[in-house]
Write a protein that binds this DNA or RNA. Sequence first.
DNA 1: GATGAATGAGTGTTCATTCAT
DNA 2: AATGAATGAACACTCATTCAT
Lengths: 233, 233, 233, 233
Amino acid sequence: MPTPRAAKQSHAAPAPREGLVERRRAQILAHAIRHFAKEGFASANLDQVIADIGCGKGTIYRYFKSKDDLFRAAVDEVMRGLLEATAPAAGLDPLEQLREAVTGYLRYFARHPEYVELLMLERAEFRTREEPTYFAYRRTHSRRWDATFTRLMREGRLRRMPVRRVVDAVGNMLYGVLFTNHFSRVRPDPARQAGELLDVLLNGLLAPGGQDARAIPAGVGRARPRAQGRRGT
Amino acid sequence: MPTPRAAKQSHAAPAPREGLVERRRAQILAHAIRHFAKEGFASANLDQVIADIGCGKGTIYRYFKSKDDLFRAAVDEVMRGLLEATAPAAGLDPLEQLREAVTGYLRYFARHPEYVELLMLERAEFRTREEPTYFAYRRTHSRRWDATFTRLMREGRLRRMPVRRVVDAVGNMLYGVLFTNHFSRVRPDPARQAGELLDVLLNGLLAPGGQDARAIPAGVGRARPRAQGRRGT
Amino acid sequence: MPTPRAAKQSHAAPAPREGLVERRRAQILAHAIRHFAKEGFASANLDQVIADIGCGKGTIYRYFKSKDDLFRAAVDEVMRGLLEATAPAAGLDPLEQLREAVTGYLRYFARHPEYVELLMLERAEFRTREEPTYFAYRRTHSRRWDATFTRLMREGRLRRMPVRRVVDAVGNMLYGVLFTNHFSRVRPDPARQAGELLDVLLNGLLAPGGQDARAIPAGVGRARPRAQGRRGT
Amino acid sequence: MPTPRAAKQSHAAPAPREGLVERRRAQILAHAIRHFAKEGFASANLDQVIADIGCGKGTIYRYFKSKDDLFRAAVDEVMRGLLEATAPAAGLDPLEQLREAVTGYLRYFARHPEYVELLMLERAEFRTREEPTYFAYRRTHSRRWDATFTRLMREGRLRRMPVRRVVDAVGNMLYGVLFTNHFSRVRPDPARQAGELLDVLLNGLLAPGGQDARAIPAGVGRARPRAQGRRGT
DNA sequence: GATGAATGAGTGTTCATTCAT
DNA sequence: AATGAATGAACACTCATTCAT
């Protein structure tokens, strides 16, 4: 008993079910991410990807213009997820918001270790691209926090310093933690690690009221007597 | 009495110019680093490298077993330099030593921006290797600081916390700064940046004596109501 | 009811021309045999092969995994033909069967002189392989004759001796003739040569009833007084 | 106390001991034979040869013009030995002489299995050469036997047939045995095998006085009614 | 829409040979 | 005579991309 739509698939089926195209794309993307993460960009073989998916070679090229394109889409997908995972929760105290975002960030990569690989790969492979997606993302995204931190300084809760420095401090720390976690075997709990990390960042390493406080680093950068050699490079 | 070196040759004299081999190796390495940094590992073309050097193709293979081997040697070279650049200066106060090391680190990569590329490339290309050279270096190298930080804590100059956390905090921050510097156009002065960076790390972001001090982050990690399960993807 | 093959394709039709793949494979094989025979394995250049065929380089690799693989396939092809050419004709007297097989063998290589080259090449190039294809073929194939010769002995038509010796005598003679024919300029008629060859093998070289018959060789192998030098080997 | 010849070796020693050059040549040749036999011509690596010998790369080229030249010399060396091993013993009955020569042939290759490899390699590699050394050797060498066999026929001890056929029969059988021995695991005693082999060759396979004697093969070659099919290749 | 056979540019690597010392 | 650093021609193999069916 043919359905009404049966006739039109007589010898070539144009989208039998709605959303099939979207699902195909997502399927390809998922497999591609796995392969890229595992093999690296150059070593990843599209033949293996299609073998995994079980489709023909040409099919991938219906959805993505090229291997590069596919890779970019994969990275974008990762970033989209990261943006979602670090979206500030409304209605919370700013510092709580920050803690949530940091936790979200750590949890995101803890759940998808292969995404860390993608981040590295992107930079390694697309040297021509002006700026890696991750840093583009970070630059854009971090603006969300500028106002927050500025306000906290005005309220006297944060020390006064260029707001960029605050944002970068958090961003850099997170980026470093990302890879340290990835390469070490330990898989710390994201929430706990977010707490420890923010504890250091907010309160600093020095003992409170100690002799060094506000002393040593303040001296830094004053005189630099040592010769720098050929500055250039 | 013949010259000391006369005896070792039975009746023939190869007698290559002394140090020629070492210089060749260094020359190849330098050119290779430049090319890898600029093109990436996979895209780097050995034909171009030899064209630059002005030697035959086989020559490279006299000094390095393969392209991989050449790349590894390049990374090792970078690490050797980094170790040298961050060697703790004797006779300084520990925190001054730290400041010197951080400055050395930043200055090293400020002078050789292409080395940052190498670091990324290594991770991207040699996914089979258990641990990237940089992290192997860092793990080994950071032990040098364990004793120092432990003592500072005992003396009450640093807050008491697991020493690993301190070391990682510095390492992660540096690693993050490395890439942020690299991808942003700004090229801050290493000594100044070391100072700012340590200021944040040592003193923290919070205003001294403020309401938040030792409060917010402490609360972190207490309750984690959300289910962690392995959420799927 | 759709055509029988309609069901197997969901909604797309690759539908390659039937037999195209097989013909391609055969075409490549034929050209490869010619090239290998003419140039030898190591010197044979796949670029020239594809130039002859008129296809792209990758095409060969769709059908054969490597140059080695291609060569092996070429030798196998030769052996397949040889097996066919020497298949015993049913219903003939055993000695007539033998004559037919020998003729078939000689005719096969007389028609395809380049196949002799392949046989030599295989041995020369694949020293790691336990046993050359030709000898593997011969070992297997010669079993077909064991029963025949055994019966002939039992019937008193052949002299009693280990059946292996008979089979080997024929096989060795044929192998020798193969190369002698190949390297000398004469191209004797296969049927005539088979007759001459079997005449010698069956009747022997000695004059009938002569003084030497069953005498000289019988003495062989009795005492071996001469020193063998270092036996080793 | 310097010898009179001491002065001339002041800084380069031209042939300190007489015969050193010859010994060097022989040494290189011996190592080369081993390597060629083991690896094949194309795969044999001169670097390994010199490593084995313990001399410099250039040295080989002082003694042999090229790799080809070295290989040819190696084969010639093998043939020289074979000629020696099969030299007819004077004062023996011709059939005894033959038996001795055959035994010598088999013993030679039994002692030096790798020489068999060389024979194959020569043919495989030097396809341009008109005639392989082995067959050139055989052609020349076999003339030694023409007179002998002719005389035996005249004396009625051998059946009358073209003398070439006799010589070839022996030569082909030997060549075949050579490889059969080489590829099978059995290592028969040369003298015994020579006896068995000559027994078959001289007395034939047929039972004496049997029905088949002088019958079957005689009919061979008469009419060849069978169609040859597509003659070409 | 889907397929997979065909393509060919691109490149790492080998190794016989040369020659300055 | 001997050495071994340098050379560069040669070649198998890969894989992203295309397109006829």
